[in-house]
Design a protein around this nucleic acid. Structure first.
Lengths: 245, 245
DNA sequence: CCGAGTTTGTGCTTGCGTTCACAAGGCGTA
DNA sequence: TACGCCTTGTGAACGCAAGCACAAACTCGG
């Protein structure tokens, strides 16, 4: 277990800083909630209040934060500013990250103009597109360059994060070129499964998949309510069985 | 326990149709992979091949598909078209869903023009915006209407899915109005935690959070490689400890 | 009809994440 | 100082998901 130490004689256990992936995914949410609380003038916050603001339960908040260290005070709560600082540091947001966006279509435009990036220390190092007609266009204060400039851009700006906002058919090639140029983290918006070599982190955001998941649940609800109206006396067991289609 | 029934005489077990959430999230990926395979002229596909195309392992594919029923043939694989049909049905994609998009900024534009929607049976029933200056604008063949028309639109089109692409500060109010109008599934792109009443499904897509997660891993990699170059002989335990900062 | 080869469907194990519940610790008041 | 109140930090139980490994079931060739 973490935090359990044995003296030199009995062996050693490195405090394992392997923060669970699920926790990492929630830290940005806490960060945002804390920003709101700080704006609201709160100096400290309890796990309960933070949980409410972040849309999770308080046990999860406490356990998540405990992975960062013991930054709370029993009987009081957490110091808002200090916690913001600790989470930011853990997420690597105390430094600036240069981001390269490939694909300046509708989505690329939306991304380039999205204010949430700069706010968290993500700087758009370059906008690239394979279509020469788009080259030269200026967007969010950055001039669009041709995809062939990728290597140079990555070298010059030390960009380590790449965003793919191209059509699906171009995504894998762009991905390969990003990796070849030295990018080690990729965020993919194209609706395809990409493959990257080990050591490169890949995350995807897929609009269509999200809608399909909603569709699944929506269908389920529809089936349920249809049953409820045609057979209002049916008990839960019957409902469940009937949904079997 | 869901689905456990006892029959009159001996005992009974209704095939438990509670498909795990993790599986539901993968079904759309399989669907896309299958579409590609169908285009490629494949009539059947093994779990191995499908796994490769979907970027998961074959055991997961088989287990996922087994929740839908026994649609495979041992020694052969799965019939591509039949599987597409079954997954579509399970996801509720055999019917059309009317979708209402609120917020016609950069992201709203990107969403409206995103081809992947129509392709899967999601029809844009309306584009709404609170800014009257945007009203009348035509986008992807749909005229932008004012947010106040929401109730009427939802009633007329029987839309059950709403997409929030507004600025953060407006999101909760829009969300409430969607719910009040009768929408029961919401996809939120605004960077805030929304609350909805029970019975309404809410999913969120957050660009900034994805980047922050990448930042976390990127930082980790940077720390590692920095160590590797300054102390090439350090063993793993030492590395791990040093990363403690 | 038989046997070799292939691929599914699934029981079981393992690991991760969530939640509970409470002891430990800090604060304020008398 | 002592006591009551509040909130954290975390051990432990639980539940869901992932992955392994193999029997069952099908095809095909002879």
């Amino acid at each position: 277990m973490r935090g359990v130490f044995r003296g030199p004689a009995a062996g050693w256990r490195v405090k394992d800083r392997g923060i669970p992936e699920a926790t990492v995914a929630r830290l940005p949410v806490y960060l945002r909630a804390l920003a709101g609380l700080a704006d609201g003038g709160h100096e400290t916050v309890s796990s309960d209040a933070l949980a409410l603001a972040a849309g999770v339960n308080s046990a999860k908040v406490r356990k998540d934060l405990s992975y960062l260290g013991s930054y709370g005070t029993r009987g009081v709560g957490y110091d808002v500013n200090y916690l913001v600082h600790q989470i930011s540091r853990e997420l690597g947001l105390t430094q600036d990250w240069a981001v390269v966006i490939v694909g300046v279509g509708n989505l690329g435009h939306a991304l380039a103009n999205y204010g949430g990036f700069a706010e968290r220390g993500f700087r758009i190092a370059a906008l690239l597109d394979a279509d020469r007609r788009r080259v030269g266009e200026e967007l969010a204060g950055v001039r669009v360059r041709h995809l062939d400039d990728l290597d140079g851009v990555v070298r010059d700006t030390a960009a380590s994060i790449g965003v793919i906002a191209t059509p699906a058919h171009a995504a894998q090639e762009v991905c390969d070129r990003l990796v070849a140029a030295g990018v080690t983290s990729i965020l993919n918006f194209a609706p395809v499964v990409l493959t990257v070599p080990a050591g490169v982190d890949l995350r995807k955001v897929d609009l269509s998949i999200e809608l399909q998941i909603l569709s699944f649940h929506e269908q389920r609800k529809a089936a349920m309510s249809r049953l409820r109206t045609t057979a209002p006396l049916a008990d839960l067991a019957d409902l469940a069985e009937a949904v079997e289609r």
